[in-house]
């Protein structure tokens, strides 16, 4: 039986060459091999969303994804790139200022999922936000503050984008 296999994972823009066992999930490798514990483990079956990461920009449950299958893909986690990620930071600020963080265990997954949502849909409606949160459980907030935080983050990112845009473009 093949045991350790070498893989090269790109996480938050940094390349990690490691040897892993093929039955390791991406969640296990992030937390246990790379020491990135911001991605949480909870239900282990894709229901709670705490383990959400982005693979090539798309939100996935890292507990249901083999690490070997992430080889060659861009993985983004809550830790973000070393130089920082303005989108992630805006979302984090909004979660903080709108009271969307209580126990904080669902928060990293929610924040990462929000990044994917707003990349696809910069101005989501309330319904679209709620739909995007399907698969993310929060037991503390009742989601109200989370929905508000995402609305706030969307506004914040649009404001930032309009400031960046060359004058006269609107």
């Amino acid at each position: 039986m093949i045991d350790l296999i070498p893989v090269s994972l790109r996480v938050n823009g940094v390349r990690y060459d490691i040897d892993i066992r093929p039955w390791r999930t991406l969640l296990e490798v992030l937390r246990e091999s790379l020491g990135m514990t911001g991605t949480k483990r909870s239900c282990g079956e894709g229901q709670c969303g705490t383990c959400t990461v982005l693979i090539d920009g798309k939100a996935v449950n890292s507990c249901l994804y083999l690490a070997v299958e992430a080889q060659g893909k861009e993985i983004a986690t809550i830790e973000g790139p070393p130089a920082g990620d303005p989108a992630l930071q805006q979302i984090q600020r909004s979660f903080v200022s709108k009271g969307a963080v209580q126990c904080g265990f669902c928060t990293p997954g929610m924040v990462v999922a929000t990044k994917a949502l707003l990349a696809d849909n910069p101005a989501p409606s309330e319904d679209e936000i709620r739909e995007a949160l399907v698969g993310h459980l929060c037991r503390c907030t009742g989601y109200v503050q989370i929905v508000e935080a995402i609305q706030d983050a969307a506004r914040g990112m649009q404001d930032a984008a309009s400031q960046m845009a060359p004058k006269g473009s609107d």
């Binding site: 894709g46 996935v60 999922a113 949160l133 698969g135």
Partner: peptide
Amino acid sequence: IGGPELRNV
């Protein structure tokens, strides 16, 4: 079916 994370995979 499911949520976005599941449908992505």
